[in-house]
Nucleic acid binder design. Structure first.
Length: 594
RNA sequence: GCGUCUGUAGCUCAGUGGAUAGAGCAUCUGUCUUCGGAACAGAGGGCCGGGGGUUCGAAUCCCUCCAGGCGCACCA
């Protein structure tokens, strides 16, 4: 890497100056940090070592220190054009363009692999995300966590880690929610056969309303009214599930025993809801390696086993008829109930068993993506994991800040039960497309609360920067196709006269391409995919500037030498590769035509 | 009350302790009709919530105050 080379040169100079008696240094143990100046007038790389040395060297004037160091930086160098002291004492380095040409050859050589690394080889990471309750569709709110988890997984894999994506289905038998959900579906099912439905008001003292049954030839003989469950699920998707069952089984469940019917509805509503979630996520380009059922933790006995284990390890005790986890000894602010006095295990017992199982499956690093409203559970889960003998540091909880929804300037409130769900697929993806939706969510850090105005998102879809980025890619492809049609052969970068690339637009573009691998690595390290999105926009901007200023193919009244055309074609191809690789990482298509 | 996240341009947000705080949208003004105009160039617009501190250097780290979001169950 060029930065390693530069650091070495600087270190040598600092030490040589000391040896020559320019200043004294207490120890030679110092960090050389190089940065890319925001302002390109400040060189290709900048080093603030002189400022940091002010104390170490016992001198007051850091500009003077910089001058002294500069004297020992070789003037003639294969990489350095010149070096200067600027501002309060920065050393600014201007590199020869040759090193930029070198990266162009590298991009061509590595192609699809350009931007990957092996920094995380040996890491086996399980990323668990979305894990929405199986009582409602994937909502727009889930969308943010979904795309974050997906792209984060891709990023980590690009650095050499083995990554698995997992969705945890809360289908535990002690969940009353599922009971209510399947009962709600049953009511809607009966409504399809002519039963009217009594809806009790959600407000205290409000009047009940009656929804008529569906009038059709298949109406049942007995159409006595049925009661909609209190706080049942009111969304339209509940009807869809009911209709699905009608289509598959007809009125079979009006005739069979209540036990048989309830058992079927329990199982069928769950599998249909999960299938619907799965397909909405697939439409968003998100594929999970594993769909993990909470119920399996119970049926396999692993919840019980985990509870016993905690007892054996001395991390569980009885009090008030319940079993408690000594989480306060493990970083939580109080102890938590593991098994209620009614003998039912709490979710923390299941979650401990679940995360224990994740480690048992051979993952050495767990990442969970949760909404910020769950932040209060972080400490107790870590405590559970620690009690079972795992390093809680290996369980990382990424909290995404809330997404609040606004529709036409008004806040959309209420959860799934009220049926106020804004569905990811139907209300967003179907309208603006997968690419724009993903880009929209990847624009900002997950750390800031986001406000999504659904109507505005649709309206702005034409101004969505994703098209700007994709357009730049399509333009590049178009040039390459056109060149082929004109019978111009593209030479490999190693053969082309790259030294002809001297225009500012070309050099800046090259520089950006050089920065790409470092940008991918730091986005993976900091879990910040949005930086890559921004990088894509900046790259697209540089591409358009290049396009505007540097004609590639010979035009009618625009003679361009064959050598320059071939050098520029090499640049176009390199830029195309980088833009495509970047879009691949984000799970957004890189179209040849738009 | 305790915990936690956030406060940056009219709006939505970037900003790896570094030099003159940036982008997109919106507003205004130009280029040009091209190898694809879904483009390019430019302008206006900021006590980086307030106040202390650490540092050679703070939007960034620490403390404090103010404002907002979220959470504080033998629910998941």
């Amino acid at each position: 890497m060029i930065t390693d080379e530069l650091s070495r040169v600087i270190r040598m100079a600092v030490l040589s100056a000391r040896d020559a008696g320019e200043y004294t240094l207490e120890n030679a143990d110092f960090e050389i940090s190089l940065e890319t100046p925001r302002n390109k007038l400040h060189g290709d790389y900048s080093c603030s070592i002189a400022l940091a040395m002010k104390k170490m060297a016992g001198l007051n004037n850091s500009r003077e220190i910089a001058e002294k160091i500069l004297k020992y930086i070789p003037a003639a160098s294969p990489i350095l054009l010149r070096t200067e002291v600027a501002g309060p004492g920065f050393l600014n380095f201007y590199l020869k363009p040759e090193w930029l040409y070198e990266t162009l050859r590298l991009i061509e050589l590595e192609d699809i692999k350009y931007g990957t690394s092996s920094k995380m080889v040996g890491e086996r990471i399980l990323v668990e995300f979305v894990s929405a309750n199986p009582t409602g569709p994937i909502s727009v709110v889930n969308g943010r966590a979904a795309v974050l988890g997906d792209v984060l997984s891709t990023l980590l894999a690009s650095q050499g880690a083995v990554v698995s994506r997992e969705f945890y289905i809360n289908d535990a038998l002690n969940s009353l929610q599922l009971e209510k959900f399947s009962h709600t579906v049953l009511v809607r099912y009966m409504q399809e056969f002519g039963h009217s439905v009594i809806m009790s008001s959600s407000e205290d003292g409000g009047a009940d309303t009656i929804e008529p049954g569906v009038q059709s030839s298949k109406a049942a003989a007995d159409i006595s009214p049925v009661v909609f469950p209190k706080d049942g699920y009111r969304g339209e998707y509940v009807r869809d599930i009911a209709r699905g069952i009608v289509a598959e089984s007809g009125d079979k469940f009006l005739k069979c025993s209540a036990d048989e019917r309830d058992a079927y509805f329990r199982q069928a509503t769950l599998s249909r809801m999960v299938a619907a979630q799965k397909s909405a996520l697939e439409a968003f380009g998100i594929h999970f390696d594993t769909w993990y059922y909470e119920s399996e933790l119970y049926s396999s006995g692993s919840v019980e086993k985990t509870i016993q284990q905690l007892k054996d390890l001395g991390y569980a005790y009885e009090n008030d008829g319940a079993l408690w986890l000594k989480s306060s000894e493990l970083g939580d602010d109080k102890d938590r109930v593991l098994v209620r006095s009614n003998e039912k295990a709490t979710y923390i017992a299941a979650d401990s068993a679940y995360h224990h199982d994740k480690f048992e499956r051979g993952f050495n690093h767990l990442i969970n993506i949760w909404g910020a409203d769950h932040h209060g559970y972080v400490a107790r889960l870590k405590a559970g994991v620690a009690a079972l003998g795992h390093d809680p540091q290996k369980l990382e909880i990424v909290l995404t800040q809330m997404v609040s929804l606004v529709r036409d300037g008004e806040a959309v409130i209420g959860g799934k039960r009220k049926g106020n769900v804004i569905e990811l697929k139907e209300d967003l993806i179907d309208d603006i497309g997968k690419d724009a939706a993903r880009f929209y969510f990847l624009l900002n850090s997950y750390d800031t609360p986001a406000t999504v105005d659904v109507e505005l998102a649709k309206k702005q879809s034409n101004d969505n920067p994703v098209y700007y980025v994709q357009y730049a890619h399509a333009r590049l492809v178009n040039i390459l196709i056109k060149a082929e049609e004109m019978g111009i052969q593209r030479m490999p970068g190693s053969k082309a006269a790259l030294a002809l690339l001297t225009h500012a637009a070309e050099l800046e573009l090259l520089r950006k391409l050089t920065d790409y691998p470092e940008e991918v690595a730091s986005s993976a390290r900091d879990y910040s995919p949005h930086r890559l999105t921004r990088f894509g926009m900046e790259l697209a901007s540089l591409l358009n500037v290049f396009y505007e200023n540097c004609r590639v193919l010979p035009g009618a009244d625009d003679p361009i030498s064959k050598e320059l055309t071939s050098a520029r074609l090499a640049l176009v191809n390199g830029a195309r590769i980088v833009q495509r690789n970047l879009l691949n990482l984000l799970g957004i298509s890189a179209p040849d035509k738009m």
